[in-house]
Computed example of a mutant assay.
Amino acid sequence: MAYAHLLGLYLGDGHIVRCRKEVYQLSLFCGDDWPGLIEEAERTMARTMPTSSVSRRQRNGCTEVKSYSKHWVCLFPQHGPGKKHQREITLADWQQEIMEAHPGMFVRGLIHSDGCRGMNRVRHVLSSGVRWYEYPRYHFKNESRDILALCCEALDLLGVAWRFNNRNEVSVARREAVERLDRYVGPKY
Rank of each mutant, 00 (worst) to 15 (best):
E88P: 01
T48V: 08
H102D: 09
G159T: 01
K141N: 06
Y24P: 00
F164W: 07
Q96L: 12
F76M: 06
D93S: 12
H15F: 15
R43P: 05
E64M: 15
V185G: 00
D182S: 00
R137Y: 11
A2N: 15
C74Q: 14
R163V: 04
R121K: 12
A46S: 14
E143H: 12
Y135N: 09
I16S: 06
P50Y: 06
E40S: 12
R137K: 11
F164E: 09
G31R: 08
N142H: 14
F106H: 07
M49C: 15
V170D: 04
S113P: 04
Q86N: 13
G31S: 14
V17W: 03
Q58C: 07
F140E: 00
S27L: 05
K21M: 09
F29G: 02
D93N: 10
A41F: 05
H5A: 10
V54Y: 09
M1N: 11
E40W: 07
E39I: 04
I147D: 00
R87Q: 03
D156M: 07
L150H: 05
R175E: 08
C74M: 13
C152V: 11
W132L: 12
R131E: 09
A149E: 03
E40C: 05
S67C: 08
F106I: 03
A149G: 05
Y184Q: 02
E176H: 10
G118T: 15
A173M: 08
F76G: 02
T51V: 11
